[in-house]
Simulated assay, not measured.
Amino acid sequence: MSIKRIEQNNRMSQASQNGNLLILAGQVADGATITEQSKGLFKNIDALLAKAGTDKSKIIYANIYLTDMDNYEAFNKVWDEWVASDKGQVPSRAALQVARLAKPEWLVEVQLFAGV
């Protein structure tokens, strides 16, 4: 079975698909607040899922990396508005605090697995 790469460059692919499994690289976004960054990265995720022919209702699992757990509730507010709970499709997930992300201004990164 061949692996399909989405938005690939010399270093990485934003998404990789093998059969019915899609794995997204960690997604981040610019913004001054956790809310702005969360909304931006969910927009990125929606676009990548669409390129793979799927959507957020097919998300199986998400890893959420926060640089400060004090941002957890603000992140969850955006997550709750975005996730496909209206379709009964709330994925499994984990939320972890990390020392920092690749750029010090990033407050949150989300990586996920989805069905296609």
Rank of each mutant, 00 (worst) to 15 (best):
N71V: 04
G26H: 00
K43E: 15
K39L: 11
A102P: 03
D80E: 14
L101Q: 06
E105T: 10
E36R: 06
W79D: 02
R93M: 10
L22R: 03
V83P: 05
W82K: 10
N71D: 14
K58E: 14
A62S: 15
T35H: 09
F75C: 01
I60R: 11
Q27W: 05
N20T: 14
A84Y: 06
S13V: 08
E81M: 11
R100P: 03
A99F: 09
E109T: 00
Q111Y: 07
N76P: 01
S38K: 04
A95K: 08
I60V: 15
Q37M: 07
A15K: 03
K103A: 15
D68M: 04
L49E: 05
G19Q: 10
K4L: 08
Q8I: 08
S16T: 15
G115H: 15
L96N: 13
Q89W: 03
D55I: 01
A52V: 05
N20P: 09
G19Y: 04
S16H: 10
A15M: 03
Q14S: 13
A29M: 05
K58F: 08
K56Y: 07
A114I: 01
F42Y: 09
L112S: 00
S92L: 11
M69V: 12
L107H: 03
A32H: 06
D30G: 13
Q111G: 13
L96T: 14
G53C: 07
L66H: 00
G88D: 12
Y65E: 12
Q97K: 11
T54W: 02
W106G: 04
G88R: 01
A62Q: 15
I64E: 04
K4P: 01
E36F: 03
F75P: 00
V90Y: 07
N71G: 03
